[in-house]
């Protein structure tokens, strides 16, 4: 089976040949397997957003190739719209793209562009709305009457309604309160679990990445710094810190404990696993370690 996304030697240069020319991506290569949940991290300006907008042809590579499901994205530029329906891209602060009179119509915009039958559109809108926790009563209201968090959910539902095979989200939880954050990310994970859609999540929160992603892609200065399973990436904490990134708080605690001379593993990145490790360590030493 071909990889969901394959990026080969991808480079992207803004304002090429001008005095303000900037290399945003520098010969990036990697593969995302079908059905994976990949987290993308990197400090501000490292090329995360530029990279993901190559997945559905919003940006055209300066050089290199992007394959979606084994097909070259730019083989036929006039056919690029086909990929836009396969790859659902949720940009940062997506609530600013709402424009229709009602929530229902706005969610139906994507499926409508796909040229689906009316019943199919209706079914998809309701399914996506339910997924994002949008109540039936909201559907007839104007999206501009909703609160910020509610608008965000409507915007994400608008992309989910296209039922993409590959879902890409750029900081979907930015600016939300902790509860809204957990709700939205939880729903995305649920969508991933139920549909098996390959999911790419860009985030600044190491906790979120640790909690949801199976694999992590670390970008730095337009290049791939690391790309590995989540635990293996967070086990390289010193390197991450050097790149101006962080590790989950709980990992920091374990690193410190090890520094203090405790013999424990440091590939711990969720609280759940942390509890297990501590208990195991205590059992192993007969409760000797003062925790």
């Amino acid at each position: 089976m071909p990889a969901a996304v394959r990026v080969e030697e991808l480079s992207y240069i803004y304002n090429q040949g001008m005095p303000d020319e900037t290399v945003a991506l520098d010969r990036v290569s990697f593969e995302i397997e079908e059905g994976a949940f990949v987290g993308v991290i990197g400090s501000t300006g490292c090329g995360k957003s530029t990279l993901i907008s190559h997945f559905n042809g919003i940006n055209r590579p300066t050089s290199g190739k992007v394959y979606i499901g084994g097909e070259d994205l730019w083989a036929d530029p006039s056919d690029i719209r086909r990929f836009r329906f396969q790859v659902g891209l949720v940009f940062q602060y997506p609530e600013y793209q709402l424009f229709e009179e009602t929530v229902y119509k706005d969610i139906a915009f994507g499926p409508g562009n796909m040229g689906l039958a009316r019943e199919e559109i209706d079914a998809r809108v309701r399914r996506a709305a339910a997924f994002c926790g949008i109540e039936e009563a909201w559907l007839a209201r104007s999206p501009f009457e909703l609160s910020g968090g509610q608008k965000r959910r409507v915007a994400i539902a608008g992309v989910l309604a296209m039922e993409p095979k590959l879902l890409v989200l750029d900081e979907p939880a930015a600016g939300l309160d902790p509860e809204g954050r957990d709700t939205i990310l939880g729903q995305i994970k649920e969508y991933h679990r139920q549909t098996g859609a390959t999911t790419v999540l860009v985030s600044h929160s190491m906790e979120d990445i640790a909690k949801y992603a199976d694999r992590v892609l670390v970008l730095s200065g337009g290049r791939v710094a690391m790309y590995d399973d989540t635990d293996k990436v967070f086990a390289r904490a010193p390197e991450l810190l050097e790149l101006g990134l962080s590790v989950p708080e709980v990992t920091k605690i374990f690193l410190r404990l090890r520094e203090m001379g405790l013999d424990i593993d440091t590939d711990v990145y969720t609280v759940k696993y942390a509890v297990k490790t501590i208990l195991a360590a205590r059992a192993g030493k007969g409760g000797g370690a003062p925790c």
């Binding site: 559905n56 719209r81 836009r84 600013y96 608008g158 992309v159």
Partner: peptide, 13 residues
């Protein structure tokens, strides 16, 4: 630019 990209991502022509 951002809004156009977002709508293009939803298949706007």
């Amino acid at each position: 630019d951002k809004i156009m990209n977002a709508q293009k991502a939803r298949g706007a022509q």
